[in-house]
Design a protein around this nucleic acid. Structure first.
Lengths: 158, 158
DNA sequence: TGCTTGCCTTGAGTGCACTCGAAGGTCATA
DNA sequence: TATGACCTTCGAGTGCACTCAAGGCAAGCA
């Protein structure tokens, strides 16, 4: 398992090696070597808008995106992997500012491992809290729904 | 269990009966009859700001809050119960506009049971989706954290 | 009497995460 | 040569959920 596949996150020349942990390798439209996607292709496969992709780059959440000879963006499989990861972080509710901070740490290299871990752990805690809150809300919802289900209408309810 | 307790949601004169489903009765600072809380007391026990409480009223998310002879708000146990429920809805990520719609349906009475149920069911589905997304993100996070945990630093990572 | 505290109203401002518009460049095809 | 699709940048606009400011009233206390 030492193949240098497209699973490392791409943040320019700093992401130098294989990613041993992004396990379930996502299937990419094109193999490495031919992975030069236009922005509209990336739009098609990520669901993000072109505006958002450019904005990610502007704020430093995405850097080192290659360009064509005419200056147009050409995304790589690594870039797609990074966007996937950013999507996960977004799912957890992590603020974009924190994602940018994380991206900066990746660019700074190995010296930031501890800080990166800390950031991800706090994100993890937040996600667990959110799940607990959702379960809690779900329980209330279920009770209400049940009430509306079998209430022909004797009692009044919220 | 026919006691007219403080567990019915309070939305003015429309919430006419007992609430058979808000099961784990929350302990309120004061018993029914003496439940006339000032806005600052409600701030203290809900964690919402006074601004937010007034705003909820303004947009129709909260109606029929009693007033003192000088025009100050006096919240009841029922109001607190409603705020609790609103908090749960907020946890699910339901937009405030939908909560207002729900509140309006409650004011309209029993004829809206089916619609209310439908709204809550779609909210429930959203909550389940969110939980699944969070689990998914959590799995990725766990892998990353593990990587940072035992990586002295051979590989490069996102 | 004056001061402080707590509340009231209306309307404007904030922060976040996009989202869009305008003006213009490049390129393949007709 | 021109048409249309697609790209670029920069700056401004949007929608949501609050959040705050200004100005004022009423009650309690020194």
């Amino acid at each position: 398992m030492t193949v240098m596949q497209s699973t490392a996150e791409a943040l320019g020349p700093d992401a130098t090696g294989a990613d041993v942990c992004s396990a379930p390798t996502p299937r990419r439209p094109r193999p490495d070597g031919q992975d030069r996607y236009t922005i509209s292709e990336v739009v098609a496969c990520t669901g993000l808008t072109a505006h958002t992709l450019r904005w990610y780059e502007r704020i430093g959440l995405m850097s080192g995106v290659d360009r064509s000879h005419t200056g147009q963006r050409r995304y790589s499989n690594r870039d797609l992997d990074w966007l996937d990861f950013v999507g996960k972080l977004r799912m957890t509710g992590m603020p974009v500012a924190d994602m940018v901070r994380y991206a900066e740490m990746v660019r700074e290299g190995e010296s930031t491992y501890a800080d990166r871990r800390e950031l991800l752990e706090s994100t993890r805690r937040d996600a667990l809290t959110r799940i607990a809150e959702l379960r809690d809300a779900l329980a209330v919802l279920d009770r209400k729904i049940e009430f509306y289900g079998d209430a022909g209408g004797a009692e009044s309810e919220q």
